[in-house]
Amino acid sequence: MPLLEGTLFEARGIQKRFGARVVLENITLKIEAGSVHGIMGPNGAGKTTCFHVLTGFHAPDAGQIVFDGKDITGLKPHAIARLGVSRSFQIMNLFDDTVVIENVMLALPAFRAISGNPLRESFSDRQLIDAALAVLDQVNLGGRAWDNAKSLSYGDRRVLEIAVALAAEPRILFLDEPTAGLGAEATRALAALIRKLRQRYTICLIEHDMRFLFNLADRISVVHWGQVIAEGTPAELRANKWVARSALGEVA
């Protein structure tokens, strides 16, 4: 599936507060189709809240969110997902008491269209099984399809969560701290996977591992105090005076 060029996803002046606390003050960013766009910043900067707003889990108090030219501001998560926006979460949300393939099948659009007893019917539907296997093959988990989900290593469970997000057939994939808790080998494997997936999907990721992010992203938005205080390519951010003066400078 070839990726189109141009801006695919855009946030314009997003604001969000919880009571008297302003979390997002003026978030503006553009994500280009076919790119890997990173979001980084210190703890408490508003990064995850930003993801929640962009994907419909929180409604913004002001501003506009546009996906593929369509205003999606304030839409519910399921409505945004149907348009082609999918995401993972900081805390994994998998069904451990099932097999790996079932986690993916439950997220397939064709599964949600089944009436009656969808789970029983899905395991007799070869097309659904093949669709789920195709998703697992994308993330190199096809060989573990019929294993119990809880038997996977922590790194493979992170990858399975990405597979669940991909099962929704997105055009853009939001990943929230995908390397959290991973060792060096699993982090390298995840980087290779993201390079593979970017051939088919636009990707936006929040990441605390700056080396990981700088090696993968085409552009990076630096969020602090609820605002985007710097944005550019990894090379541009390395030359940014604010980044150079901050703790991010050593990594950059």
Rank of each mutant, 00 (worst) to 15 (best):
K30Y: 08
K30G: 07
T48N: 00
E32H: 11
T49E: 03
A33W: 04
V23P: 10
L29T: 08
G44C: 04
S35A: 12
Q15L: 09
Q15P: 04
F18R: 02
A33H: 03
A20W: 06
R17E: 09
C50N: 04
R21M: 12
F18Y: 11
G34V: 09
E32D: 14
A45T: 04
G34L: 07
F18M: 02
G38L: 11
G38C: 08
R17P: 01
T48C: 00
H37W: 07
I27M: 10
P42Q: 00
V23N: 11
T28L: 04
E25P: 09
V36D: 03
A33E: 13
L29C: 07
R12H: 14
K16V: 14
A33Q: 09
N43T: 05
H37S: 11
I39A: 08
F18E: 03
K30N: 12
R17Q: 09
G44L: 06
T48R: 00
N43Q: 06
F51M: 05
I39T: 02
I31W: 04
F18K: 00
G41D: 12
R21W: 08
V22D: 14
E25L: 11
L24S: 06
G44R: 02
L24R: 02
M40I: 15
E10T: 13
R17W: 08
T28D: 12
R17T: 11
K47G: 00
A11D: 11
L24H: 07
E25Q: 15
E25S: 14
G41F: 07
F51I: 02
G19E: 14
H37N: 09
A45Q: 01
V36T: 08
G34M: 05
T49I: 01
A33F: 02
A33D: 09
V22M: 15
F51D: 01
R21H: 11
G13T: 07
G38M: 08
F51K: 05
A11N: 11
K47W: 04
G13P: 07
G13A: 12
A33V: 05
T28I: 08
S35L: 03
I31D: 04
I31T: 07
T28K: 03
M40C: 12
V23T: 14
I27L: 13
I14W: 12
L29G: 02
G44M: 05
E32A: 13
E25W: 10
K16E: 10
E32Y: 12
R21I: 14
L24E: 03
A33R: 07
T49S: 06
R17S: 14
V23I: 15
G13L: 12
G41R: 06
E10F: 12
I27P: 00
K16P: 02
G44W: 05
R12L: 15
I27F: 01
F18Q: 03
G34I: 09
E10C: 14
I14N: 11
G38V: 09
G41E: 05
E10M: 12
I27V: 15
